[in-house]
Each structure stands twice: as C-alpha cells, then as structure tokens.
Design a protein around this nucleic acid. Structure first.
Length: 570
RNA sequence: UGGGGCGUGGCCAAGCGGCAAGGCACGGGAUUUUGGUUCCCGCAUGCGUAGGUUCGAAUCCUACCGCCCCAGCCA
C-alpha cells in the first residue's frame, strides 16, 4: 500500500482515542493491534472498505499490527468461496495482514475450555427451552424477561450436559448453553444470551469435528482477547452489545487469564451509505439473482469487485474514505465525492486517447487526395515524462455527432454550418455543406481546412473557441465501449419506504457501443490500464475481455461537463 | 410509554466555554488547442427546538422534538 498516512490527516475520534490510550500508557507494552473480522458469507462492498482501511491505516499509523480474522462461527452460512473473494478484495485494497490470517474456528478448542470455566464458575448453564420458549421467556422491549427453569442447574449437571452436547448426543435446537446474566436488564442482549448452540453441520474448516458452535457475542470478544487485539472496532449497531463484550472479556480475564493476551475494548463507528446505490446484502443479492446486473462484480455494483471491474483504483477508494471521515452519525456519502477522487487521480496518470463514441463522417474537401499526416500528441498534457504519440490525420475523419449542430444556440462553440472549429492537435476546419439522407438526418459534413492553422505552427491568427476530438477513418481501430451510469435514478433508493427499490433502477445504467472508431494507438494499450478518452471520460481497458476480438473499454466516470449545465439552463 | 445511539450549510465533517476548520456539491470570474485541468472569489448572524447558567454557549444544565438500532439457537 502507499506510504503511511501523515498522522495529521487522520482526525477522527478513534485516532484521537488511540493516541490518548498510548499517552496514558493504557496499552502497557503492547502495540496497537486491530483486526478486520468478516463473515465469509458474501461479497465485500465499499462500506466494508471503510472498516478495512480504518483498521489497517490505524495500525500503520501507530506502527501496530493488523489481523484478518474470518468470523466463521456459523457453518450453515459460510463458504470457502467467500473466504477467497474476501482475501482477494482486501489484498487489492492494499491492506496487508502479513502472516496474521486467522479464523475464529481456529480457536474452537480454547473456546470450549472457556465455556467450561464459565459453567464451573456458575456463570453459564445448559438450557432445555425450545427456541420459541426462549423467545417468550426473554420478555419484550418494555417488559423484563423471566428466568429459565433450567437456570439453576448444578455445575455438575451443566458440565455433564454440555459435554454431551459436544459429543453429539442431542439434536439441533434441543439445548443451548447460556450465560447467566440478568433477565430483567433493559438491554435484551444481557438477558441470559445464548453462547453455544447445537448444529450438526459440516464446517468449511473444522469439518465434522464439532456439532456445537459458539455465538458471535461469546466468540468475538474472546477471539479478540486471544489475538491480543487492543482496539476492536465495529459498526454502531453493536453498541448495545458492548456490555456483553465487556462481560465476556472480564470473565475471560478472571477465569482464563492465561489465554488472554490483552483486554481489548470495543469502539463503534457509523457505517457508510452511498448515494445512488444500495448497500444491504439482501438487496445486492437480489440485484444479482434477478439479473439486473451480471453478477457481484458487475461494474455498477458498489462491491469491491464491482468497483475493481469498473476501473476504480485502491488509492481513489482510500482517498474517498479519508475524505468522508469517521463518526458515529448515520451518513450517506455523496457518489460525487468518489467520482471526484478517481478523476483527480486519473487526471495526472491516465494517458489520453481519441475515440469517437457516436461518429459522423467529415470529408475535408480541400485536403490532398490520399495524403496522410502524422500528428504528434502529448500522452498526458503537462507531463513530459509521459511522452508523445503519433496520430494519423487524413481527409476523411469522424467527429462526435454532438459536436455539430445545424442550428446552434449562442454559446455553442463547436461545428455548425459556416462555423469554424479546431480539430485537436491538427487544423481548423470550417463547415461548408451538410449532407442529409431522405429522412433529413445528417449523414456527412463537407468541410474545408485552413493549412495555415496547423497546431503548434499556426500563422493564421485565427482564434476559435471550440476544440474537438476526431479519428481518421482510414486508420481507425474498432473498440467496444461500455458506458456505465448510476444503477439507480434517485439518491437514496434504500430509504424510500413502501416502494420497491427495484423500481428506481436506472434503465440506462449501461449503454453498449459495439464498434466505435478509435485512434490506432489503442492497439498498444495494456489490459487493466486506464485512459482518458479526450473530452469524454476515464476508461478502463477490461482485462477480462483481453482475448476478445475487439478491446473492451469500461467507462469509469465521465469528465465533468459544464456545457451540459449551460445547455440545461437554456 | 424499556435500553442504546445520533442530530453543525445540499452531502460528509472539524470543533470539547472565547465568538463556526476543511472537502465534495453549488454559483461567479480568470487561464486553457480537452466547455477537462488549474487558479481566484462567493457560499451557516448560524450549530434539532425552547428555556437556563455565564462577561461570553455549537460547546455546560433542563425540558422537549426528530431520526436510527435492539425482542436470531445470524454476524
């Protein structure tokens, strides 16, 4: 990943909290140690990127450590496929976990021992209530719960039952292990939470070794303690779980001190939403399953895989997260900010190319027949190191259909009958005649060029306001272009109540141009590299389509278009 | 009507009793062979509301209002 961030750049409350912990010596002789704990049951999205980058960056800033730990305590939901994709995504983002890749399931054995100690201390018991009974006994938001009739079993009986649970003597759902806390607590999480359940399900890592599995609230704090995590960051909905987190760690410290590397503390921060998209796993899955997108990695998806195939860069995503910041308030970041970040990066790094998306033929009537001229163009204006390239120019070219108007408004600087415009890097041309088909559609423009106006050596003294891009027809290479736009038409499709978010899908979120003329230099472009199509936007040469007949370019983001604003205002 | 969290400009977000940072967006102007970039300028008499404390309040106190989360043997 890029160099460590200047600490001055990080100004969020978690950064200051850690800094204070360090100053007060609260970490004793430990270094800052964070972790990212994904459950391997789905794809990561840009909201996860916030958590990954926060944890990783914090560890970097303070010279600490960062663990990747898969939270795989529920064998029913988890699969190896997701472990692989998650690791790929995190690696791509640049968060390096070194040799600290862990799985919650690695510690099932110690966790079992810890559960036994809890039982021995009289702080956990085996409960025979059915799932429904447990729910009823729990009470409601406004009424306290009732104690389970099994709450006061003897330690001996609990130990025996728990062992038999582990040995597979009981059916799924018939018994659970519960922490004995407080059935009257206003915090439902403290009403004797279930900490182990019976699940005769094969686990993706431990196989059939276990038929009882720990619950998150028991597992997570203890895993943190085992790994010596100093700062356990999580999203805001876990705030209610913090007392339970502390209960577990305190008990571990008291009953199983030799297993605890550090008494970690949980700190919550708000998750991020993004405008013009949805973030919930359920909704993303629906988009995939109902084929509104081609898959989890569709370039319109807010998944890490989607952003990657769209052409976004890890640096732009990190910059975006940095600018969004971290707080405890619900927030929806503006997609415009993410777009700004990628444009800012690509402005100085992406070589330019001329491609005409919607071509109209231009014949330069006074151009010597058959003559070809090589035009030298800068790859990245203002950056000499990026070099130059030759672009062939001839008497028949394509220009963008929208760069010509038969009856232009006042502020239109492009081509129009009798008007002049500069062809980028080449000459100034003047539109002499408009040719139409029988339906009245413009099919071709007859123009004249002024030999005095060659770029770099213009002796005409002419000043034209408009400069347009072009491609020589004879020398053009064909490319396929995918124009991506927002997947949804409204800013917050997720928060609209009573209306199915599917109805806000943007029918024009993908526009495909099968064969579009591009300057011949495209042939040398490397798959996976990014370009600016002059005046159009930033594009990513799809590496997945590398074998195709034509190169495939995905639009990452369009260039800002102030003309569109002028037009709208009239 | 139980518990918890949060309310600072359109979107984020600093601020922690001394008189509202910054970014994006937006508006205006300059430069420009990308209507891009860059560069200037503008953009909260106001910090959910109402009271109170104080010489002084976004910051402290009180009450109220609004939004979010919690009743999985999910994480």
């Amino acid at each position: 990943m890029k160099e460590k961030k200047e600490t001055e750049e990080m100004t969020n409350f978690i950064y200051y909290m850690i800094k204070e912990d360090l100053e007060k010596g609260l970490l004793e002789n430990k270094c800052v140690h964070t972790r990212f704990p994904p459950e391997p049951n789905g794809y990561l999205h840009i909201g996860h990127a916030k958590a990954i980058l926060l944890n990783y960056t914090l560890a970097q800033i303070f010279d600490g450590k960062f663990n990747l730990r898969f939270d795989d305590t529920n064998p029913i939901r988890e699969e190896q496929e997701f472990v692989d994709s998650i690791m790929e995504d995190i690696r791509w983002l640049g968060a390096d976990w070194g040799d600290r890749l862990f799985f919650s399931s690695d510690y099932f054995d110690v966790k079992y021992q810890f559960a036994i100690r809890l039982i021995e201390a009289g702080r956990a018991y085996v409960c025979d209530l059915s799932q429904e009974e447990i729910r009823n006994y729990r009470g409601t938001l406004t009424e306290p719960g009732k104690e389970s009739p099994y709450r006061n079993r003897t330690v001996k009986e609990n130990l025996d039952l728990f062992e038999r649970m582990r040995n597979g003597e009981f059916a799924d759902g018939s018994r659970v292990l519960r922490a004995k806390i407080d059935m009257a607590s206003g915090n439902l999480n403290m009403r004797d939470p279930v900490i182990y359940r019976i699940l005769h399900t094969r686990h993706h890592r431990t196989g059939d070794q276990w038929c009882i599995y720990p619950m998150y609230d028991f597992d997570h704090p203890f895993s943190d303690a085992l790994e010596g995590i100093t700062h356990s960051l999580c999203s805001i909905e876990y705030t209610d779980h913090r007392p339970l987190y502390d209960w577990i760690v305190d008990n571990a410290l008291e009953l199983f001190p030799e297993a605890v590397k550090f008494r970690s503390r949980q700190t919550e921060f708000a998750r991020m939403n993004l405008t013009y998209t949805v973030m919930s796993k359920r909704k993303l899955r629906r988009l995939v399953e109902e084929k509104y997108v081609r898959g989890w990695d569709d370039p319109r998806m807010p998944t890490i895989a989607g952003l990657r195939s769209r052409g976004f860069t890890p640096a732009a995503i990190a910059d975006f997260q940095e600018r969004v910041g971290v707080s405890r308030a619900d927030s929806t970041a503006d997609l415009a900010l993410l777009e700004h970040c990628i444009r800012e990066e690509l402005e100085t790094t992406a070589p330019r190319l001329m491609v005409v998306l919607d071509p109209i033929r231009v014949v330069i009537t006074n151009w010597p027949a058959g003559k070809k001229e090589e035009i030298m163009m800068e790859n990245i204006p203002g950056n000499e190191n990026a070099g130059t390239r030759q672009v062939p120019f001839s008497g028949e070219i394509y220009i963008e259909r929208e760069d010509f108007m038969e009856d232009p408004p006042k502020k239109y600087f492009r081509l129009a009958p009798g008007k002049e415009v500069r062809l980028k890097g080449a000459y100034i041309i003047c539109c002499e005649e408009v040719i139409k088909d029988t339906a009245g559609n413009v099919t071709e423009l007859l123009c004249s060029y002024d030999p005095q106006t060659k770029s770099g050596g213009d002796t005409s003294g002419k000043k034209v306001k408009g400069v347009i891009h072009w491609v020589s027809i004879e020398h053009a290479a064909g490319v396929k272009v995918n124009l991506y736009d927002n997947l949804f038409t409204i800013e917050n499709p997720e928060t609209e109540r009573d209306i199915d978010f599917i109805s806000y899908i943007n029918p024009e979120s993908l526009e495909v141009y099968e064969d579009v003329p591009a300057e011949p230099a495209v042939a040398e472009a490397n798959p996976g590299s990014r370009f600016q199509f002059l005046r159009k936007g930033y594009f990513y040469l799809d590496p997945l389509a590398a074998g195709n007949e034509k190169p495939v370019f995905n639009r990452i983001v369009a260039l800002k278009d102030s003309w569109a604003k002028v037009k709208k205002k009239g």
